[in-house]
Computed example of a mutant assay.
Amino acid sequence: MVEFSKRVPADGTDAVGVILNSASDPNVISFAGGLPAGELFPIKEMEKATDEAYEKHGEAAMQYGSASGVVELRKQLLKRSEEKENIKAELKNIMMTTGSEQALDLMGKTFINPGDAVLLEEPTYLCAVDVFRSYGAEFVGVEMDDNGMRTDKLEEALKAHPEAKLIYTIPNYQNPSGRTMSLERRKKVAELAAKYDVYVLEDNPYGDIRFAGEEHIPSIKSFDTTDHVVYTSTFSKILAPGFRLGWVIANDYLIKKLTVMKQSADLQTDNLVQYACSAFLKNNDIDAHIKEISKVYSERKDRMVEDIKKYFPKGVQCTNPHGGMFLWVTVPGVEDTVELFKQCLKHNVAFVPGDPFFGTNPVPGTFRLNYSCMPIDKIDEGIQRLGKALQEAIEN
């Protein structure tokens, strides 16, 4: 019998994949996937940008390239990062990745040995949990509230685990909760990273998609005076996920290490996509495009929250994010959220159960809803179906 790596789940199952695939039935209204609204993709503009990439950089676009990425695009992203996130960095501090998902994998590969402690918000991004677990991480959950990761609990965890290799956080419109970390806590996270000599991986896929609340809060990386914070972001939520284009900003020593790890994975990120995105940024107002996305998502989120209040059983709670793509639901009295998912699927409506979003002990009765990719009428119908299914689950 073939013996697989310990990174492969022992039972051979893909629980999340099964859930998402079962929700792909056209009769099912699915709030499960983390999909942006496809009708908002700038297809015509990207077609022109791709044509320009071929015209001006055709040979380079089709040839092997630098693992660090296309220089023109990296310069544009450094400028944008300084303007939007208050991050001051140089060309040697940024590298392109095949989606921000690769950034997670490279960080895991670079830092984590079996048994190493990784501190993370709970709940948190389920794919980050999967990636870090595949390298043998031992998770230490850090409690959250409406202002994001609690830094008092973070310091307690750091004191208890001085050997910790990494702190993982999504400070803006967090996946899955939709919560945003306060300014004071961002400063404190950077301070604790320096104090305890541990790297912070600041994952920011959603930060541009803001539709309520205060002005944009600067990144944790902007308060990093000791090079302990690694910042990553992506084009997946503001242009298109199919491009698989992300980036990492970190100290040059770490960038060199990550580049070596990347070369052993895929040599380089797609050159054509990089040149095309660079042309798009040059010729279009990406902030106007993001504003359009944010307006649509705001309307869909507001309707979902209104419908939850109207159709869900009393006592059910949900977050009310100021941006991003997700909200988090808690149903008191439900012990098995996967079984709840199965019951809801009978009503032709789907979500992602909360269990995979926890590195340690899942909180029962929790699940994630996505509002970005469903039109208003589908949100209305889907939340009504979900409300009926929840009522039946509670009564039974």
Rank of each mutant, 00 (worst) to 15 (best):
N93R: 09
N93F: 07
N93D: 14
I94H: 07
I94Y: 06
I94G: 06
M95P: 01
M95C: 01
M95R: 11
M96Q: 02
M96T: 10
M96C: 03
T97M: 03
T97H: 07
T97C: 01
T98C: 11
G99F: 04
G99N: 05
G99D: 04
G99P: 02
S100D: 13
S100V: 09
S100F: 13
S100Q: 13
E101K: 15
E101V: 06
E101M: 12
E101P: 00
E101W: 12
E101F: 13
Q102V: 10
Q102C: 13
Q102G: 07
Q102I: 10
Q102P: 04
Q102R: 08
A103V: 10
A103R: 11
A103D: 04
L104R: 10
L104F: 12
D105L: 07
L106V: 04
L106H: 09
L106S: 02
M107D: 04
M107Y: 05
M107A: 03
K109S: 14
K109R: 15
K109I: 06
K109Y: 10
T110W: 09
F111I: 04
F111H: 01
I112E: 01
I112V: 11
N113H: 13
N113R: 13
N113Y: 11
N113E: 14
P114K: 13
P114I: 09
P114H: 11
P114D: 14
P114Q: 14
G115Q: 13
G115C: 10
G115S: 10
D116P: 08
D116T: 08
D116M: 02
A117Q: 05
A117S: 11
A117V: 13
A117K: 12
A117F: 07
A117W: 10
V118F: 00
V118Y: 08
V118I: 04
L119M: 12
L119H: 12
L119A: 11
L120T: 15
L120Q: 10
L120G: 10
L120F: 09
E121S: 15
E121W: 04
E122W: 08
E122F: 01
E122M: 09
E122G: 00
P123C: 05
P123N: 10
P123S: 12
T124M: 02
T124N: 05
Y125P: 00
Y125V: 12
Y125G: 07
Y125L: 13
L126T: 10
L126E: 04
L126C: 11
L126W: 14
L126Q: 14
C127Y: 13
C127E: 11
A128V: 14
V129Y: 07
V129S: 06
V129I: 13
D130M: 07
D130W: 09
D130P: 04
D130V: 06
D130E: 09
V131A: 05
V131H: 01
V131Q: 05
V131D: 00
V131S: 03
F132I: 00
F132D: 03
F132N: 02
F132H: 00
F132V: 08
R133G: 13
R133P: 05
R133N: 15
R133E: 14
S134E: 06
S134W: 09
S134K: 15
S134I: 02
S134P: 02
S134Q: 09
Y135D: 01
Y135V: 02
Y135G: 09
Y135N: 06
Y135S: 04
Y135W: 12
Y135M: 06
Y135F: 15
G136L: 06
G136N: 08
G136W: 06
G136D: 11
G136P: 00
G136E: 08
A137G: 06
A137C: 05
